[in-house]
């Protein structure tokens, strides 16, 4: 592995380019191959897994932003009391 600092982690810009390229290559809806076998059952991969979340509000977040928010709100509460 290269020891250059930039080499280990792709920069934001690089990963950005990757996204752009891949989506552009897929620019169109493709013809389905004629020999594709279609079944009448719904896609097992899609029905078995939970693909969407409707209950995602949570009250206990430990990320940096949430911590900072809590701290600042406490400070401002003290000031106003």
């Amino acid at each position: 592995m290269s020891s250059q600092p930039g080499a280990q982690q792709p920069t934001v810009e690089e990963s950005e380019k990757k996204v752009i390229k891949t989506l552009e290559e897929d620019d169109e809806f493709e013809d389905f191959p004629e020999d594709t076998k279609w079944t009448n059952e719904s896609n097992p991969q899609l029905s078995s897994a939970n693909l969407w979340e409707e209950d995602w509000d949570d009250d206990d977040n430990q990320d940096d932003f949430s911590k900072k928010l809590r701290d600042e709100l406490k400070k401002s509460q003290k000031l106003s009391n």
Partner: peptide, 8 residues
Amino acid sequence: GHLPSKDL
């Protein structure tokens, strides 16, 4: 308000 899961 339906967020895609990590799995998806």
